[in-house]
Design a protein around this nucleic acid. Structure first.
Lengths: 339, 339
DNA sequence: TGTTAGCACTCAAAAACAACGAGTGCTAAC
DNA sequence: GTTAGCACTCGTTGTTTTTGAGTGCTAACA
């Protein structure tokens, strides 16, 4: 489709634009890429590339900038994998060595390091109950009226909430109840537990309606509402990008990021594994039609545990971002596996 | 110190400036405040107020804006309590009715509603272990090699982390261990547990060094690092304030907000209860010397459980912010008490 | 003695204008 | 096919002008 020279020129333009955010002119290319061509020749090629939809001109007397199509092409065919520097890897290793106390913290740190290394906003969505399977339930008594209900799932995470204990109920009864419920629900994905099953347990066990109601509600809550946790990182980073020098633009982006539902939708994990890059209008929301997103889903024993993503202007360092995410991705799966 | 007329004029200036963000001129005051005075008279008064340090002039041909001293005076003596509208109260009530599943969520929602209602950044810092007292420890087994260690504290919250179980150790042994540790540490504030005490437990109980080491580390972690949780709300809101129309300004603020340590320092809860307003240079960091902060500490049974704060430009709707926080404050204590 | 109309003055912000220069497209020569 | 040369475009930058909101001062008034 494109001959080698065009490809080379396109690549130079893209990479120059990515690093400078300024439209690229023919002189610059002649100087930088040692193609042994004069600006005039390059101009002809650029003119062709524009006709083919790879370049755009902000206005006549400016250089040219890559189109969405160009980025797509760049990501698909031009980009070379590009390993991380030892420095970067050491940074990541060191970063986690102190920050893997619990799962939440791991995700939180991931979001942080991700944004710090890519200079863009990062999002980490941890799928919880949706895939997690119920293992058992336990009450940790607090006092006569209250206990903490802990639900342990098979991915080693734990959810808890407070429940009120009916007057006079003994701890032994609670324990018994926990055992029965555990047996009933064991191995079920949290979000699969439906009304019918609750009803089943209800019939079998509980005399106390209020307790049971609050239990049901609590489990329901854990399963449905709490099913994904979102960690964001580095809104600050994006302010360094010239495309966000305008506050209005930042506001648009933040509106999306602060709306949990939107973030979830954005990252609704695709089935396939590996990295996924969405560019410009490929993104779901109009507010980020001039942004690109690189996302990766990570899994544990085949199950999707979460998704991480980097969001920034289409003029993004795809190479760097992809290699950082690739490294983090594998790294994360290892950490989680050893948990 | 100031006669009534000066007070009245000052108040009008402050409130006008708060709502418009434009320097206030004598004409405006004559029109708005029905003092029956001509602009000329008001000009004389304003001139006095400037001499007294209450007003500043951005430049000769502009109106005047309140000084930090003026805001201080306003907050201390001029402001009238100003109740929330029924509408606002209903909003808050409705907001919580669906969002009080667990403590984290309550704090999170608080940060959100706070920023939404005040149009400023909000921060909620939840003190955890520092004041919380150790109640008991429990292991929730996962498989042969792993268990979740839960530490229940007297404020009804729970912290957990994964620990590895030495090969061959039985669950009964763990239970026993948990019992011993619980007995040893019961009633102690988490951050008071020091090396000596660990050593004491160690001598009494454990044969296994690795398990013990990881236990120590885990408890230490919970006590030290995890002692406060921070919830932020509404960075977006602040972008609507004209003083943050400049991205550089926003970056400065975000640098502080994204640094957990700084937020904690900022809110390092003062002993006294009630609301505290810091204006301009009264704030700890130079990055927010043109901001004001309204904070409230909330308590449970006399113990400080956390702090919430609203941070925005000095030109802040103090009246609204204070009444929102006041309402939330009491509201929160009630919710937490009933937990 | 306090209040006010009148007026000259100030100065930031907006508008209008000029000069610059990076970059292009086209043509003609190599 | 490549390239030097040149006229042309148009955003950016800098300068000047205009505008108008607001002030301080003075003198007159109640």
């Amino acid at each position: 489709m494109l001959n080698d020279r065009k490809k080379k020129i396109l690549q130079i333009i893209i990479e120059d634009y990515i690093s400078t955010a300024e439209p690229v002119g023919s002189r610059t290319i002649a100087r930088k890429g040692d193609l042994g061509l004069s600006p005039a020749t390059i101009r002809n090629e650029m003119s062709d590339l524009e006709l083919l939809g790879f370049l755009e001109q902000p206005h006549t007397s400016a250089g040219r900038i890559p189109s969405a199509q160009a980025y797509r092409f760049y990501v698909d065919s031009l980009i070379e994998p590009g390993l991380l520097t030892d420095n970067d890897m050491a940074l990541i290793d060191g970063w986690y060595s102190e920050r893997k106390r619990n799962i939440d913290e791991i995700f939180h740190s991931t979001a942080k390091i991700l944004s710090r290394m890519t200079h863009n906003v990062s999002m980490v969505v941890a799928n919880k109950s949706s895939t997690a399977k119920f293992r058992y339930l336990k009450f940790l008594p607090l006092d006569k009226n209250k206990a903490i209900m802990c639900i342990v799932t098979d991915n080693g995470s734990i959810d808890n909430c407070l429940v009120k204990i009916p007057l006079g109920m003994q701890h032994e009864e609670l324990e018994y109840l926990a055992g029965r419920i555990s047996k009933q629900f064991e191995g079920k994905a949290l979000n699969e537990i439906d009304e019918k099953e609750f009803a089943g347990v209800y019939k079998n066990i509980s005399q106390d309606k209020t307790l049971f109601a609050s239990l049901t509600k609590a489990i329901r809550n854990l399963a449905n509402n709490n099913e994904q946790k979102i960690f964001l990182g580095g809104a600050k980073q994006i302010l360094n990008q010239p495309e966000f020098r305008d506050v209005e633009r930042v506001k648009e982006l933040l509106s999306i990021l602060e709306e949990e539902k939107m973030v979830k939708d954005l990252l609704s994990a695709e089935g396939d594994s590996g990295l996924k890059v969405t560019i410009g209008t490929e993104n779901a929301f109009t507010g980020i039609h001039d942004c690109s997103m690189v996302q990766a889903t990570y899994r544990l024993n085949g199950e999707i545990v979460g998704t991480m993503a980097v969001l920034g202007p289409t003029r993004m360092e795809y190479g760097k971002v992809i290699s950082v995410m690739d490294y983090l991705h594998k790294y994360l799966e290892t950490i989680l596996k050893n948990k």
